[in-house]
Design a protein around this nucleic acid. Structure first.
Lengths: 340, 340
DNA sequence: ACTTTTATTGTGAAGGTTCACACCTAAAAT
DNA sequence: ATTTTAGGTGTGAACCTTCACAATAAAAGT
C-alpha cells in the first residue's frame, strides 16, 4: 500500500445527488444554504452528505466564483515580536470570518520582493492582501499598481498616508515616553532610535525631538540602532563613548532597551538612579527586565483584527472609503524611570 | 469607478493561443516547459505571454491536477519565539521549493482544534501538512486518521515516536545544561520546568533528573512554570519559599529564566555568585540578560527546513520511510553560570 | 374551470486548465 | 519508392462547481 497521495476519487456533488436521487443542483443548493429547497429534500440530502462524507471542492468552486476566500499576508521580519504578533492575530480574525491565510515572509522589504511574493501566487485568485510595510520606499501608488484590482490594507504604513491602512500612532507613543521623562524632571534626554529607513523609527525619533523642543529642551544625542538587543547595546556604547551627558534615555524598542541597560550597567550607571530608560512595544519580557522596564504598550491584537475587518469591508462593500485607521498606544510605568 | 474587484476577465491560454495563432495546448506546453515544442513556436508564444501579461490560473490547474502546491502549517502558540521562528523558516524553505504556506494558529492544542483547522480548509486540495504538536494527547494514529491520505510531518512530536517527524533532541539539551552545572561542581540543583503536558517539558525534566542521578546526585526540587517570564518568576518564588537550598538552577526556557533571575535577585541572591542559572532556547535577548544567560541553543531554522524537505519527500517520492529526524542542540556558555 | 403565481427541481453551459490521444509532416530507414 | 519513426501540433474530454434559465407541479387568484 503506497502512502503517496493516490488518485482516490473524491466524492462529488453528483455522487451525493445519485445517492439520494435528486439533481446535483439541488445538492449544491443544500450545501450553499439556498432557501429554495423543500424541507424533506434537504433532510435527505444532508443525510447523504454525512453518509458519504462529502466535502465541497473549494477549488472547483473558486474556478467559477472567481474568489478563493484566501488572504495573503506579506510581512517583513516575521521573527520579530511585533510582526509575529500581528500575523497571529490577523490569522485568528481571518479564520473567524471564514478566510484562510497565506503567509509570505520576505527577507528584504523592497518593491521587487513584494512584487515577487505577489507574483508567486498570482493565479491563485487571492481575495485580498495585508501588507506589513514598515520601511520607506514602499508607497501606496506602487503597491496599488502591483496589486492590480485586488484590494489591500497596509499595516505600519507611513502616518498621514492616504493609503488604506491601519496603524498605531507612533508619534503619540514616543511623545508619551518623552513627556514622561520630562514630567519626571529630566532635562538631558538622549535617544537610541530604530533604523531610520523604518517609518516607525523616523516617527518616534521626530516626535521625541518635537516633544523636547515643545518643552524648550534641547534634544540630546540620538544614536541609531537596529532593533536587536546587541544593536541597542552597541548604540548605547557609542552614545556613552561620545561623552554626552544625560539622565534620560528613550529607546526605540524594548529589545534595544535591554541591550542599552546592559551597556549602562557595564559603565557603572545605575537604572533608574543615574539614568531613566523608557522602551517601546511592551514585550512580555519587559516586566522582568532589571529593573522592570517602563515602556509604551502597543495593542498588536487590535491592529491585526482591525486590518482584517477593514480588508473584508474593502473586498465586500462597494465604496468603503480609503482611509487610515489609527490606534493609540499607552504608557506602562514600571521601575526603569524615576524622578531626577 | 468602483474599487470592488470587478469581474475583469483574466487572460487565458486561449487568448494567448489566438494571439499567436497556435492551439491552447501548445501554449500550455510552453508554460509547463514541455520539450515537444519547436524553438520558433516557443519564442512566439513566450512573446505573446509577455505581451498579454498572461498568468496561468492556478485554480484551474489545481482542479485537474488535484494538487495545489499549498502546504498547511498548523501551529500552537505562534506568538512564542520557538513556533514563530519555525513558521518563518518553514515558509522560506517552502517558497523556495515552489510551495505556498497556509498558516493556521490554533489556541488550544487538542485533536478537536486540529480537526477543525484541517476541516476548515478541506477541499482546498492541500498537498501536505506540517503540524507543530508540542503537547501530549496528540498522537500519530489520531492525526493520521484526521489527515486522511494527505502526508504530514510533525514537529515537536514525542521523542522515539514512529511518526514522520522532525525534532530537536530535548533530552540531550537538558543533559547538556545539567551536566554543565555538575561539571562546575554544583551538587544542589533545582529545576523550573515547563508545563508538564508539553513533550518538551517532560523530556527536559526527565533528562535533568536522569543526568543528576547518573552523577549520583539527588535531584533538588522541581517547580512547574508556564513558559512565560512571569511564570518563571512565580515558580522561582515558590521554589524559594519552600526553603530548598540549591546553588544551581536549570530553567525550562529563557523567558522563564529571565523571571527566575528577577525572583532570585529580589531575594538577594546574586547570579552567578550565589546561584548559577541555565536556560533553554537561546532567544536573541538572552545575551543581554543580567548577567548574560548560559543556555541551550536550538536551531529552529534547520528544524523548519528539514520539516519541509521531509514533507516534500513524503509527498513526491513513493516509499519515503516514516522516521524521526533528530537534530541536536548545543550549549552556549555565558555569565550566568560559574564554578561553585 | 382557467389563468397566474409560487415553490421546488432539473438542464446546459461555463470557468481555465491538463491529460490522453490522434493527426500531420518531414526526415530517416529499409 | 515505400515504410517507419520522431517531432511537432491540435482535438475532445475531464476536473467539480455555480450560474442562468427552463420546466414542472402545486397553490392561489379570478
Amino acid at each position: 500500500m503506497s502512502r503517496l497521495a493516490s488518485p482516490i476519487r473524491r466524492v462529488t456533488l453528483h455522487d451525493v445527488a445519485r445517492h439520494c436521487d435528486v439533481s446535483y443542483q439541488t445538492v449544491s443548493r443544500v450545501v450553499n444554504n439556498d432557501p429554495h429547497v423543500a424541507k424533506e429534500t434537504r433532510r435527505r440530502v444532508l443525510r447523504a452528505i454525512k453518509e458519504l462524507n462529502y466535502q465541497p471542492n473549494r477549488v472547483a468552486r473558486s474556478l467559477v466564483t472567481q474568489r478563493s476566500n484566501l488572504i495573503e499576508v506579506i510581512t517583513f521580519g516575521g521573527q520579530h515580536y511585533g510582526p509575529a504578533q500581528m500575523v497571529t492575530h490577523v490569522e485568528q480574525a481571518a479564520r473567524q470570518r471564514g478566510y484562510n491565510l497565506i503567509l509570505t515572509n520576505i527577507t528584504r522589504m523592497t518593491l521587487e520582493e513584494i512584487q515577487a511574493a505577489i507574483h508567486s501566487l498570482s493565479g491563485r485568485l487571492i481575495d485580498g492582501f495585508i501588507l506589513v510595510t514598515p520601511v520607506v520606499g514602499v508607497g501606496y501608488e506602487e503597491l496599488a499598481e502591483i496589486c492590480g484590482n485586488i484590494p489591500f490594507v497596509m499595516i505600519d504604513a507611513p502616518q498621514q498616508s492616504t493609503a488604506p491602512s491601519v496603524v498605531i500612532n507612533q508619534r503619540y507613543g514616543s511623545q508619551l515616553a518623552t513627556q514622561h521623562l520630562i514630567d519626571l524632571g529630566h532635562r538631558e534626554i538622549c535617544e537610541i532610535s530604530g533604523p531610520m529607513n523604518w517609518h516607525g523609527a523616523v516617527a518616534r525619533h521626530e516626535s521625541w525631538q518635537q516633544t523636547l523642543e515643545a518643552a524648550a529642551i534641547t534634544p540630546g544625542l540620538s544614536v541609531e540602532g537596529n532593533w536587536t538587543p546587541i544593536g541597542g547595546y552597541e548604540a548605547t556604547c557609542r552614545l556613552l563613548a561620545s561623552g554626552a551627558h544625560f539622565t534620560g534615555l528613550v529607546v526605540g524598542n524594548d529589545q534595544m532597551a535591554l541591550g542599552a541597560m546592559r551597556a549602562l550597567r557595564e559603565h557603572h550607571l545605575r537604572i533608574p538612579e543615574d539614568i531613566s530608560v523608557v522602551g517601546f512595544d511592551d514585550i512580555p519580557e519587559a516586566i522582568c527586565f532589571e529593573p522592570p522596564l517602563t515602556t509604551v504598550h502597543q495593542d498588536f491584537a487590535a491592529l491585526g483584527r482591525q486590518a482584517v475587518e477593514y480588508l473584508l469591508d474593502l473586498m465586500n462593500r462597494v465604496d468603503t472609503p480609503l482611509q487610515q485607521r489609527v490606534l493609540y498606544p499607552s504608557l506602562v510605568e514600571r521601575q526603569s524611570t524615576r524622578h531626577v
